[in-house]
Design a protein around this nucleic acid. Structure first.
Lengths: 205, 205
DNA sequence: GACTGATTGTTAACGGTGTCAACATTTGGA
DNA sequence: TCCAAATGTTGACACCGTTAACAATCAGTC
């Protein structure tokens, strides 16, 4: 009995266990349906234990969102590395990284993009993770700019418009404004349609 | 005293009073900080009274979001009426209607666009209000299509891309990914930059 | 190896919340 | 005038986030 207690009183890696449990519950019940007490229970720990690892519920959610931003950043960098001479393809694949995240883990994407965590008090870790993800996408635009494929306009405007479009599609899927693609192929087709439209412009040329 | 009771026991127009109180509190405390009990108190009524007019808290929020969609629809229709021969201007002004809503009543815009209310159980009124708003914007694209200003592609793709861009900018402002414009002029300038980019396309031509 | 402070858990409590059932008042029509 | 429907109130319930007080364990020092 003492042995048992000795082994279990300290979890060992409770912080990560809580994050993982929260990710599972998030997928099941959504952001609104997630309670810290439930997360603690799923991790096999008392309801106040999480407060040894997170200042509050928001900080746990922020940690999860930060993981998502990291994943996004990696997707961008992978796209840049994989198609070094094809900035158009880089852009497409980076956008697909966005959309894939939305499809695979919509609740995490929701945390990242909806703005729930955008209060004044967002943690430094979250801010920097988000900034780095955005910068990775900006870098992809910059690559294309240097290779001369983009219009001779402000790079900032290019990036802003591209980002807005990707972000908008993501949010429209998350918000149910367009129907969620059923397969990866459908998602890819959706991405192709929008990206070619965006690159070519709406106006007749 | 009886007279007093007689006059006040029944509020008269509690439903709208609750909606108005909720809108005020929403602007002050945000969506997360809004409690139904607080709304009831602000309307001078007991904490359970709202349940005579709304099935639950979500239904109250849905009513507010529906008002926002109506406002958006009106902005689109006004733009179409105001510039009947200039579909490009129609598009720009409709988009500005979006962005203006985001600036003026960010919390309502958040309700409409964030996806909080996008569960399976969204009310019929909300769905139809949202659909009508989207259709108004789609109609503006259709106008331009018929006047021949847009590329010869699927109208659906045109609409989707345009909507995604507007939606994306809105959400990026709401989520704090880009800094909130301080003035209407700055907002308009932002809209101009993005819309011209979107219309002309990212690629060099 | 025993002592000691820091870490990491538990338990119990607080105020707040959404929601519901039971009751009270008012209204409007038969 | 009376009665049912509509509308508001009160009180309760379970749940939640958070904190304080306490307990167990761990890590390092003598």
């Amino acid at each position: 009995m003492q042995r048992h207690l000795k082994e279990n009183y300290h979890h060992g890696d409770l912080r990560n266990a809580l994050i993982e449990a929260a990710i599972v519950l998030l997928a099941q019940h959504g952001v609104d349906g997630l309670s810290l007490r439930e997360v603690a229970k799923a991790a096999g720990v008392s309801h106040a234990a999480p407060y040894r690892h997170f200042r509050n519920k928001t900080e746990l959610l922020e940690s999860i969102a930060a993981l998502g931003y990291n994943r996004l950043e990696e997707a961008c960098q992978l796209a840049a590395k994989k198609f070094p001479d094809d900035p158009e393809r880089q852009f497409f694949e980076a956008g697909m990284g966005y959309l894939t995240l939305v499809m695979d883990q919509p609740e995490i994407a929701y945390l990242m993009f909806s703005g729930i965590l955008s209060g004044q008090k967002r943690s430094e870790a979250l801010s920097s993770a988000g900034t780095k993800a955005v910068q990775s996408l900006a870098q992809i635009i910059e690559n294309g700019k240097q290779l001369g494929i983009y219009a001779d306009q402000n790079t900032e405007d290019l990036t802003l418009t591209a980002l807005a479009c990707v972000h908008g599609i993501s949010m429209m899927i998350l918000g149910g404004l367009i129907k969620r693609p059923a397969t990866k192929q459908q998602l890819r087709a959706l991405g192709k349609r929008v990206s070619s439209m965006l690159l070519a412009g709406l106006l007749r040329r």
